[in-house]
Design a protein around this nucleic acid. Structure first.
Lengths: 252, 252
DNA sequence: CGCAATATTGACCACTCTCAATGAGGGTGG
DNA sequence: CCACCCTCATTGAGAGTGGTCAATATTGCG
């Protein structure tokens, strides 16, 4: 968040690519030449603005996307105009993995604020991964991680009450900002209360009330989109606390 | 699928393998030789019994598993003895994809009834996929499908009420049985009411009441574990109906 | 400046959970 | 083979969390 200033398209392009490389390669031991091959298939896109779509449900699947700056939400639209928010994607995060199976997107992706996004043509990536076992392995890992994340989200929605969900959500954002070198305590929510509620399976009003309550309890300070987490530890205890569920299944 | 009768271990082994091959290769155009290479890394396991674990949370990740006969549940245990059921796995379905990332399982898998399960050592599979692009592609697809499925589950938990969840659950089972050649109308639930409720984020009592109500409404007939779906169409309409949610987010 | 979208707050209500009691199977041991 | 026990399932009554509806800020944008 600090001193990064996007000056020209060329800068975006360079910054964008290196960011994507980090996401795709971090734990791999790629030699420089492979790195370069990978780099060459990553395309920058022009800066996108609030409301722009990366893709819509039903679009043919061409590319994976990596957020360089800004943020993106993915959501599943329903016939009647409603939607289920599936995720919020911050810098460094990959979008579109759920589209590989039927070669068409089954959710839509919309940018929440002015964002720089890299595109990676999947066919190229796949081809490249044939001759780069470490890239193939990394792809397996990225796909697998997505599954794990969805599973913990299932647990959140299945077992946790409203306050636990919101606390977990804030801690998730906090951790992801931290990992990317931003402040884990002080950040801006690029999504609306409505979208937060939708994502967490809660009504807007519930989200709003909880923000107020958390603030009263000294857990955080929130004003509009700006939020400061004052007590991460206590926030964590909110998540874990009432997981004292009676929903235990006896083994046989 | 029809006349397959498992008589001996040797038969199990053969049936088991071919089943796994179907799962792994169905949409691929594998030549016989590749098919054979793939076949050779698939291992049968001895028949497992109700309550046996395929793996537990924290176990080192070695194998993927494919259900040949029977059924398996995966679940995320929590410290306090509770758990979140993540899925029920029927014949032909793959288990363990979420473990690739950190090479250790982050959920447990327990068989619900006497079951035949195939093991596929992931390291072998991965190695094989290096020289078999179509296998690699199929792996990407399988992983991607898992993500899609989890996402639609997120929508179910986030937006749908109890009756919609149970109806969707039953229809999911129905469809999966049908695809495997079993009756989509008449089957046995190998999981308890408790486990169904846990999976759907509902209390046991709610599940029980809903079964009763669905029965009163003529949607189905249920006795203990045996269930007959009498009106798939009406069941579908139960799922779709009250998705007339007001939780719509205006585009900007 | 005014309208529209977003947030907040309150009152009320409903869906589902919790608690509790009863009933029905299924397995084990006498 | 039956009795007993334990788990699982069902049903009822009451309570609580969170949703719905509605009114009122507040903000942002044209």
């Amino acid at each position: 968040m600090s001193d990064r200033k996007v000056i020209s398209f060329e800068n975006i392009k360079i910054a964008c690519k290196s960011c994507s490389l980090v996401t795709l390669c971090l734990p791999m031991g790629l030699d420089p030449e492979d790195m370069d091959r990978l780099d060459r298939i990553i395309k920058r896109s022009r800066p996108l603005h609030r409301g722009d779509h990366l893709f819509r449900e039903g679009d043919a699947f061409q590319c994976l996307y990596i957020v360089k700056t800004g943020s993106v939400k993915t959501y599943a639209p329903s016939e009647d105009g409603g939607e289920q928010v599936l995720g919020f994607h911050l810098p460094g995060e990959l979008i579109g993995l759920d589209a590989i199976e039927n070669a068409s997107h089954n959710c839509s992706a919309k940018v929440l604020e002015t964002s720089a996004i890299c595109e990676i043509p999947f066919s190229h990536l796949e081809e490249l991964s044939i001759s780069m076992p470490s890239l193939q392995h990394q792809m397996y890992r990225l796909l697998s991680r997505e599954i794990s994340q969805d599973e913990s989200m299932l647990t959140l929605l299945g077992k946790n009450n409203a306050e636990e969900r919101l606390a977990a959500f804030l801690l998730s954002l906090s951790g992801r900002f931290k990992r990317r070198g931003f402040s884990p305590y002080d950040f801006y929510l690029s999504m609306s209360r409505h979208e937060i509620g939708n994502y967490l399976g809660l009504a807007v009003e519930t989200v709003s009330r909880l923000f107020t309550r958390f603030q009263e309890e000294g857990l955080l300070e929130v004003e509009r989109k700006h939020i400061q987490l004052l007590d991460l530890q206590r926030l964590e205890s909110v998540v874990k606390r009432s997981s004292s569920d009676t929903n235990q299944i006896q083994s046989t």
